[in-house]
């Protein structure tokens, strides 16, 4: 019996190690490339540990002639504003869907979910025309607006599950005490879903932080480009600066990794709840 338990433990560790290798391998490759000088980047045979590790790639990413810092600010700006707007909109709508009964609610909610069914490429041509007519091409606003197309439905859906998790009795008591629906919502429920709001914001931030297609299509000026598009600056007409590219990529990943580290628990709760009750 003890022997069986022991082999069981060993198997678990074996699987855990295999899982870790599978998950981490691409990251290790990226880090390795980002620490290599050009003459070590493509060798035969290839190797992981740089012989003469260097931080030059990271310095060059922020160096003269590089717009990386600007892209970083742009991404931060666009993702934060989008997140705030989505949160502002979703907070009301998700409460409405979670708590209040009104005719057509189910149909409208299905409509909301329906918007997840098509690829963003399907609406990009009309959106481009709309942006063009409004003279919004090449503005931050074009990105923020287009990001609402996918982040509002997700935000509402996710936040709704957090509202569903709040016991109904609390509001009902407040309503009986003479609060209006809005007061009950604002004073009683909102404080209770704060963690959910954090998780929803983080998820929306994560979606908008890495958005690529709209950013590629709507922005022209270098000074307004966001990171996912901007890192392709290191891909030239003939040659790619892989060292710089990978250094920049790692820097792009860090903020979302940090955010996820902190909100993972809430987010997972919201996603599973939302999925099952949605």
């Amino acid at each position: 019996m003890i022997k069986r338990q022991k082999t069981g433990k060993i198997t678990i560790y074996l699987f855990a190690v295999l899982l870790a290798i599978f998950v981490l391998f691409p990251f290790v490759v990226m880090i390795s490339m980002s620490l290599k000088a050009p003459d070590e980047q493509f060798t035969s045979p290839p190797y992981l540990i740089p012989k003469r590790p260097t931080l030059n790639n990271y310095l060059q990413v922020f160096g003269q002639g590089s717009m990386f810092a600007q892209y970083f600010i742009n991404s931060l700006l666009v993702a934060s504003i989008s997140t705030l707007i989505v949160l502002g909109v979703a907070i009301f709508s998700s409460y409405g869907y979670a708590r209040i009964n009104f005719p057509g609610k189910n149909i409208l909610f299905v409509l909301l979910l329906l918007s997840q069914l098509f690829p963003l490429a399907a609406i990009i041509v009309p959106l481009y025309r709309i942006m063009g007519n409004l003279k919004l091409i090449d503005t931050y606003l074009s990105l923020i607006i287009s990001y609402l197309t996918f982040s509002v439905p997700v935000g509402v859906w996710l936040l709704r599950s957090f509202f569903l998790g709040v016991p109904r009795e609390l509001e009902e008591a407040a309503l009986i005490d003479g609060c209006t629906r809005f007061q009950a919502f604002w004073r009683i429920v909102i404080p209770l879903v704060r963690p959910g709001m954090g998780a929803t914001s983080a998820y929306v931030f994560f979606l908008t932080w890495q958005e690529f297609m709209f950013a590629l299509t709507f922005i022209n000026s270098e000074s307004k480009r966001t990171l996912p598009v901007g890192i392709f600056d290191f891909v030239g007409q003939y040659e790619t600066n892989w060292g710089n590219l990978m250094a920049a990529s790692i820097l792009v990943c860090i903020p979302v990794f940090v955010i996820f580290f902190f909100i993972q628990k809430q987010l997972v709760g919201g996603l599973t709840e939302g999925a099952i009750k949605g």
Partner: peptide
């Protein structure tokens, strides 16, 4: 000046 990488 407005500059783009080759791909775009």
């Amino acid at each position: 000046f407005t500059v783009f990488p080759y791909n775009e």
